[in-house]
């Protein structure tokens, strides 16, 4: 099983980024081999539609689980259509989030956690 954790910083202990889509890094963990790969999120600074694009990228990487803090409607719809389960957490580090997931203590998100942003936080 391949997990994707939205990641803010890479130096240990790597911090989890609560934002899906605009996190600067994505940590992919293969639970079968324990192989961990940190990928820079080249889409993070896009003007709009970032959530949906990153969701598609996560699907292309073959992940079946996403662990993040919050998720918007477009990204959720793409992950859902791709059969990817989304878990939300308030854990602050990637390691902590992974441990909670392995212990079965994370909540599965059945709906987006908030409305869309249409270009970051600058709404009018």
């Amino acid at each position: 099983m391949k997990l994707c954790v939205t990641t803010a910083t890479t130096e240990a202990p790597a911090r989890l980024d609560r934002r899906f889509g605009r996190s600067p890094f994505l940590t992919f963990v293969d639970t079968d081999t324990d192989e961990t790969k940190i990928e820079e999120n080249g889409l993070a600074d896009g003007a709009s539609g970032v959530g949906a694009k990153v969701a598609q990228l996560v699907a292309e990487r073959g992940a079946t689980v996403v662990i993040t803090g919050q998720i918007g409607p477009s990204a959720f719809a793409v992950l859902d259509a791709a059969g990817i389960a989304t878990y939300t957490t308030s854990a602050t580090t990637v390691a902590e989030a992974l441990a909670l997931f392995r212990e079965g203590r994370l909540d599965s998100a059945r709906a987006p956690t908030g409305p869309g942003h249409h270009g970051g936080s600058r709404r009018r």
């Binding site: 694009k53 969701a55 719809a77 791709a82």
Partner: peptide, 12 residues
């Protein structure tokens, strides 16, 4: 703009 996504051969 991320208005189209293709997953599992389906366009959203």
């Amino acid at each position: 703009f991320g208005a189209l996504a293709v997953v599992r051969n389906r366009v959203l």
